[in-house]
Design a protein around this nucleic acid. Structure first.
Lengths: 238, 238
DNA sequence: CACGAAAATTGGTCTAGGCCAAAATAATGG
DNA sequence: CCATTATTTTGGCCTAGACCAATTTTCGTG
């Protein structure tokens, strides 16, 4: 019997999210309550508090020092690399690569996505959610947001098997330039369910903004790759 | 008072390395002893066993399933991307980037490194160990191995401030092509000491093999970036 | 007031064990 | 012999507390 339809999240994970709301507006360096205080405040054990804080530290949201305390971490530094030609070429490695389409839908753009795609907030945009598989194993979860009229996108993507191929062949949209960011992230409930990893497993979080030849942003994609099964290889001319 | 000069490693970390030697020659899918059995066998608590196993799972060395057991994981899958022009350009982002030289030395090549650099095992090669800093914070640990005669390398690298610049300006060696691999790793004692991170923190492990224009491998570098403070950004033309 | 020693604070590690849930295994009944 | 059910095994989560080590704070003394 269930008390509600919500999944039973571990206590440490709920606490982690509560601490996250506690610190989201705090300045770097701000001390949070001690582990013993949090344990008492939330009616839990110190072990559980440490598991929650440990993941936030691993994600770079908190720092801690023995004897001093735990405090809000400074934001991430960005390192820039130049690269070319992102090809959807997993198959060229002798691996059976595939993408399973989870959802293709149209929805109004939220402010952040609208800004990235340079459209008015609330404008209808397309959402394509896929699971990337290699040799049958789920290795990445991708959610792409696309601007512009793309009639019958669900069908064309399913037929082409590739989002980029559908854009190019069916809509005449060519992604000429992309900007990727790669960082680490820990697996949450979504990744646990979709990618068959453990809570807290290290993942590679990749954001991609794709532009047409005339500089118009048309694609905003957030991908989460399994850090334990995946290795990016890059060949490049200097 | 100390019983030996060795650092006092956490018990879970010692256990982790022991489990690692246990499984290094085992076929994927091989079951390891249960947590309760390992706890008794190594005279420790199940909590400590779980911390050790948890990190091995996070690193992709073990898989585990509730009710079934814990077993050796299959090797990592490799995903290939095409990119160009790796530039040592951290400074171009308005950040004060620097590299602190830890060690420059000459030593005989071990078999693995010799193979990568296409030299005979035992050939003298150069080793350049550096800490990369951004805004004074240590963000990466790099160890580069270089083949070929590079007289007075320690001085030239120190003067140029850049390994690539020294190779190009002082020895006429141009790195024309590189192959990078990027994967996740958890911080061990070395990273804790050198990069000021916690044990078990997620890191980005980058291997680079650099080639001259005629295809000769001359550089083999292993870099560990802080996953909590770092974000790679890649701009590329498709 | 300044300095050094002592105490309190805080995170780091570890123990011993309990209860739950998923999977595998054994027992049972048709 | 097969299918169903109960039991056992195994990992998942959690508690309550102990001791240690680094740091900060307090306090005593010159």
């Amino acid at each position: 019997m269930e008390t509600s339809a919500a999944a039973a999240l571990p206590k440490y994970y709920v606490l982690k999210e509560q601490i996250l709301t506690l610190i989201e507006d705090a300045a770097p360096g701000t001390l949070i309550p001690t582990e013993r205080a949090l344990a008492e405040q939330y009616g839990t054990s110190r072990t559980t508090v440490r598991q929650a804080i440990g993941e936030l530290v691993a994600e770079g949201r908190l720092d801690r020092t023995q004897g001093r305390g735990t405090y809000v971490a400074p934001p991430k530094v960005t390192h820039v690399r130049q690269l070319t030609s992102f090809t959807d070429d997993a198959a060229s490695q002798g691996l059976t690569a595939a993408a399973r389409i989870v959802d293709v839908s149209v929805l109004p753009a939220d402010p952040a996505t609208a800004r990235r795609l340079a459209v008015e907030p609330g404008t209808d945009i397309h959402r394509v959610e896929r699971i990337r598989l290699v040799d049958g194993e789920p290795l990445a979860h991708e959610v792409a947001f696309l601007a512009g009229p793309l009639p019958d996108l669900a069908r064309t993507v399913a037929e082409r098997g590739s989002l980029y191929a559908a854009l190019r062949e069916d809509y005449g949209i060519r992604i000429a330039e992309v900007e990727d960011t790669v960082e680490t992230k820990l697996a949450g409930p979504a990744e646990v369910q979709l990618l068959d990893v453990e809570m807290g497993a290290p993942m590679l979080l990749v954001h991609r903004l794709g532009f047409t030849p005339d500089g118009q942003p048309v694609e905003w994609t957030e991908s989460v790759f399994r850090g334990d099964r995946f290795r990016f290889v890059a060949r490049m001319h200097v």
